[in-house]
Design a protein around this nucleic acid. Structure first.
Length: 821
RNA sequence: GCCGGGAUGGCGGAAUAGGCAGACGCAGGGGACUUAAAAUCCCCCAAUCGAAAGAUUGUGCGGGUUCAAGUCCCGCUCCCGGCACCA
């Protein structure tokens, strides 16, 4: 890239850098010349990705931080000789646009497009090196037709299905939510309290992948915090399923337990209020009315209330009995609030002696307690607290005397023989509910036919376009359901009149595959070109927020595994390495409008420029920690950039001080090495900036004492090392120093190892581990000589004069420790 | 309750593999330049005692290992986050 002096270009005669003019100049230039276009070449690839934003209208400071981090990584890798894919796009479906339409009448599509245009301008102002040729927006038919196609793929693979049941409903958003999207009983987006509704909805069978999602975590280079969250969320637990026959019903109640070793201690069986057997068990009994009332009462209570820790356990006897599978004894069947219908089998065996909850419940309702495990295999009289630990079995028929661990396998095997149970794994995670009763999303490509049922839309008919002529009433119900012309269609199978599915997909579906689309964004026939995707995937570095730990990051892993199984992609994990950045806080608190502590990227960049803003964000905290904005702090980064500018543009003095020359060479080598480590695997951008500051300070000390050519080379190195962090200033200086081309297309500087090996080093002399003196010795001095010099040192001699020397430890290049008694 | 992460000067933070605690910056103090101020350049800046040299203490708390511990081990405290009537 040849850059010529432009007449409209600001000419900066003074010693102050005109930030605004220079930054704008280079932003325009980079855009015109498409410097950051990603190409498939024979260079090694690097896929650097940041989570794409919802186009809300404005970037916030959190965005500024993520995109800065990603940009530094991308720019650094380019200079290191990688072919870098660094794309950007828009997670453009979502409720805010639809809510705005209800309020102001502006169609979601128009407001979204306008928001994207504005935010793209802000990204340009930040100097981000995106390849805009690969931009995607999930709300475009070119994109969502493939979201729909992927739905069909899932459907064909048995991974998309409809199910009726109680679901989470957000009254404010007027739509259902997936389990992952309910936080402490509240909607993740709007914080409204979530209620229950009985609805038939579409699900993705993510639970089929529970084990693989768990195993895959092991090899990922992700923060332990995030892996643990996913691990907890999946919630795998091993145990057994045990059948308790119900003679009256000619059915068996299946329970899940992690403690089959305590099976002989079961004294009753409990069903969740929603359990399908409840009604059949009580039919015609005296207890029927009371049980029905109890179950109905529990059903309407919110999850919040029902699962709160202090909620008292309560239940009611159904009047019916089940048979213990091993002893044949009749066990009363209860219905209780502490059993959840959607975990395990929705039924448990009550073992009061060995389970905290059962113990409390049994006490309350005077149910028998039977000790079957104890530390020594002897009965425990007068049990005051449940015995929860494993131990040796008691009163357990032929299993008595066996250790708990062995008993689990033995009892399960015995049950299996009798056809009454087996080892079983249960998960906390539920299937992913993807239906949303909202307009601004990808329509689920299904047609409901009276005769054929739910029929997938044939691929050739995709996309199922969102109708434009709808009205946003805000009166509840999806606008799609009211778009009669759109809903009415014919069945693809029997051609009879049929109706379209009016729910759209959760926007997390859109964002579960966008990183594949970037690899071939214009591919017209498929979601992506497998050949290109295989060239770029997996993402080498993914930068984003921790709020997506069990949302986007879990869903994306699931998608990737399904696509892998379908043979579309070689990898089965999308994100090799994950950088989870901390929040941006201001005035000691997370920014929010209600607190009035918001910061706008516009005003900050207008005041200090993009480079100083970027630099300060990198410098003030390691990326994964929360970052506190400070005007005084950014001022420091601004001053540093001005300092670099003055150093580079001033007319240098010239000297011939050999010692200074050596100091500069050493400082240069140290700086290059440090930046190479810190911008690479270490991702320690804060210490990278401080290393540049140290290097700059060193150059201020010595640049005028050395030949101009040496000073110039040292300063050029500074500019190159600064390029990933402060792209505008370094570009400007690169050009002013008369070096050709774009600084961002230069190779990363090299250094000669000889400058890192010191000829002399200062070592410390310790007596009993306390530092008592410092001496300078040749770097290659051996241990013996170090010891001799240390013992000969007069300050040391004074301290050890009348003592017995027990030991002398010498670590070359570091210290000598004299141990005396 | 279970799991994960953390605690270092006035502040943000550094110390990458057990080897000089506090790099770099902010705030503060001093000097140079200036008629003056700003900007800039240079210096000082953990605490206590001391005029200084220096001494002592010091990385949340209590123990331990080691010639040597912010770093490793054992036992705690507090803070942040996840999961939690999950059988």
């Amino acid at each position: 890239m040849q850059i010529e002096r432009d007449v409209t270009r600001p000419s900066t005669q003074t010693d102050r850098y005109d930030v605004k003019a220079v930054e704008e100049f280079w932003q325009r230039r980079w855009e015109e010349e498409e410097v950051y276009r990603a190409e498939i070449t024979d260079k090694p690839k690097f896929y650097c990705l940041e989570q794409f934003p919802y186009p809300s209208g404005h970037l916030h400071m959190g965005h500024v931080r993520v995109y800065t981090l990603g940009d530094v990584i991308a720019r650094y890798r380019r200079m290191r000789g990688y072919s870098v894919l660094h794309p950007m796009g828009w997670d453009a479906f979502g409720m805010p646009a639809e809510n705005a339409a209800i309020k102001s009448g502006i169609p979601p599509r128009s407001s979204t497009i306008a928001n994207i245009a504005y935010m793209k301008g802000q990204m340009r102002q930040m100097g981000l090196s995106f390849d805009w040729n690969r931009e995607v927006a999930t709300c475009e038919p070119d994109y969502y037709r493939f979201t729909q196609e992927l739905f069909l793929l899932f459907y064909e693979r048995g991974l998309a299905y409809q199910k009726a049941g109680a679901v989470n409903w957000c009254p404010h958003c007027e739509t259902v939510l997936a389990n992952e999207q309910v936080e402490e009983g509240r909607c993740w987006r709007c914080d409204a309290e979530v209620t229950k509704r009985d609805l038939t909805q579409w699900y993705f069978r993510i639970t089929d992948y529970a084990d693989r999602l768990l195993e895959g975590l092991r090899d990922l280079d992700w923060p332990p915090e995030i892996k643990t969250q996913q691990d907890n969320w999946i919630g795998r637990s091993e145990g057994a399923e045990v059948a308790f026959p119900v003679p009256d019903l000619d059915e068996t109640i299946r329970v899940f337990t992690t403690r089959p070793d305590t099976l002989y201690g079961a004294t009753y069986v409990v069903l969740a209020p929603e359990h399908p057997f409840v009604e059949r068990l009580i039919a015609g009994r005296e207890s029927a009315e009371a049980v029905r009332a109890f179950a109905a009462g529990e059903r309407v209570r919110s999850d919040m209330e029902r699962t709160a820790e202090n909620t008292e356990k309560s239940g009611i006897f159904t009047g019916a009995y089940a048979t213990h599978p091993l002893t044949g004894q009749p066990l009363p069947i209860w219905v209780a609030n502490y059993v959840l219908v959607d975990y395990g089998t929705g039924a448990v065996m009550g073992v009061p002696a060995h389970d905290q909850r059962d113990f409390v419940f049994a006490r309350k309702y005077h149910l028998p307690v039977r000790v079957v495990v104890s530390p020594d295999g002897q009965p425990i009289p007068n049990l005051a607290e449940p015995y929860l630990a494993p131990g040796r079995l008691v009163d357990s028929g032929s299993f008595s005397g066996i250790e708990s661990q062995a008993a689990i396998g033995a009892i399960a095997a015995h049950l299996q023989e009798k056809g009454l149970g087996r080892l079983q794994v249960s998960y906390r995670m539920r299937d992913w509910l993807i239906s949303r009763q909202r307009y601004w999303g990808a329509p689920i490509p299904i047609i409901h036919c009276r005769d054929c049922g739910a029929v997938p839309v044939p691929r050739a008919d995709l996309p199922v376009l969102l109708p434009e002529n709808v009205t946003f009433t805000g009166q509840g119900g999806s606008p799609l359901a009211a778009a009669e012309e759109w809903v009415a269609t014919s069945c693809p199978r029997c051609k009879n009149p049929a109706r379209r599915e009016t729910d759209t997909m959760d926007t997390f579906v859109d964002s579960s595959w966008y990183y594949f689309r970037y690899t071939s964004p214009q591919e017209p026939r498929a979601p992506f070109d497998p050949e290109k995707a295989n060239r770029w995937m997996a993402v080498d570095e993914y930068v984003g927020g921790k709020e997506h730990a069990v949302l986007h990051l879990l869903y994306s892993r699931f998608f990737t595994k399904v696509l892998h199984d379908a043979g579309w992609i070689a990898v089965d994990e999308p994100f090799r390495r994950l950088l989870v950045q901390g929040m941006v806080v201001y005035g000691g608190a997370k920014m929010s409008k209600s607190k009035g502590n918001t910061l706008s990227p516009e005003s900050i960049m207008a005041r200090w420029g993009a480079d100083a803003t970027r630099l300060f964000m990198l410098f003030a905290a390691p990326p994964e920690k929360d970052f506190e904005w400070s005007d005084q702090g950014v001022e420091g980064s601004f001053r540093f950039l001005q300092r670099v500018y003055r150093l580079a543009v001033r007319t240098p003095g010239s000297g011939d001080d050999a010692a200074a020359g050596e100091r500069i060479e050493r400082a240069r080598a140290r700086a290059v090495r440090k930046l190479t480590e810190d911008l690479g695997d270490r991702r320690a951008f804060n210490t990278a900036v401080s290393a540049l500051m140290e290097y700059t300070n060193a150059l201020y000390q010595d640049a005028d004492r050395v030949p101009a050519s040496l000073a110039r080379r040292a300063i050029e190195t500074l500019v190159l090392l600064l390029a990933p962090l402060a792209p505008h200033l370094s570009q400007e200086l690169w050009q002013r120093m008369g070096s050709g081309g774009s600084v961002h297309a230069q190779a990363w500087p090299a250094f000669d190892d000889k400058w890192l090996t010191e000829t002399e080093v200062e070592i410390v002399l310790q007596v009993n581990g306390k530092i008592r003196a410092r001496i300078t010795v040749p770097a290659d001095v051996d241990e013996e000589r170090m010891k001799q010099q240390a013992l000969a040192d007069e300050r040391i001699q004074v301290l050890i004069a009348d003592k017995i020397i027990r030991k002398v430890v010498a670590i070359p290049g570091r210290l000598v420790n004299v141990v005396v008694a």
